[in-house]
Simulated assay, not measured.
Amino acid sequence: MMHIDARGLRCPWPAVRLAKALRQGADAVTILADDPQAPAELKLVAAAAGADMSINTDAVAPTFVVTRRPVGNTVFTQSP
Rank of each mutant, 00 (worst) to 15 (best):
M1E: 13
H3Y: 11
H3D: 08
I4C: 03
D5C: 10
D5T: 12
A6F: 07
R7L: 07
R7F: 07
G8D: 14
L9P: 03
L9Q: 11
R10D: 08
R17W: 11
L18P: 06
K20N: 09
A21M: 08
R23W: 08
Q24F: 09
G25C: 07
A26I: 02
A28Y: 02
V29D: 02
V29N: 04
T30G: 00
L32K: 07
L32S: 10
A33I: 04
A33S: 13
A33R: 06
D34V: 12
D35M: 05
P36H: 06
Q37C: 10
Q37I: 06
A38P: 05
P39V: 06
A40C: 05
A40G: 08
E41D: 13
L42R: 04
K43R: 11
K43P: 00
K43V: 00
L44M: 12
A46R: 03
A46L: 02
A46F: 02
A46W: 02
A48S: 05
A48K: 05
A49C: 03
A49F: 11
G50F: 04
A51P: 01
M53Y: 00
S54G: 09
S54M: 06
I55R: 14
T57L: 07
D58C: 03
D58Q: 12
D58W: 02
A59P: 00
A59W: 05
V60Q: 14
A61T: 10
A61R: 04
P62S: 10
P62Y: 05
F64H: 01
F64M: 01
V66G: 00
V66S: 00
T67P: 00
T67R: 12
R68H: 04
R69D: 00
R69E: 00
P70V: 12
V71I: 13
V71E: 12
G72H: 14
N73G: 14
V75K: 10
F76M: 13
T77G: 08
T77A: 11
Q78F: 08
S79T: 15
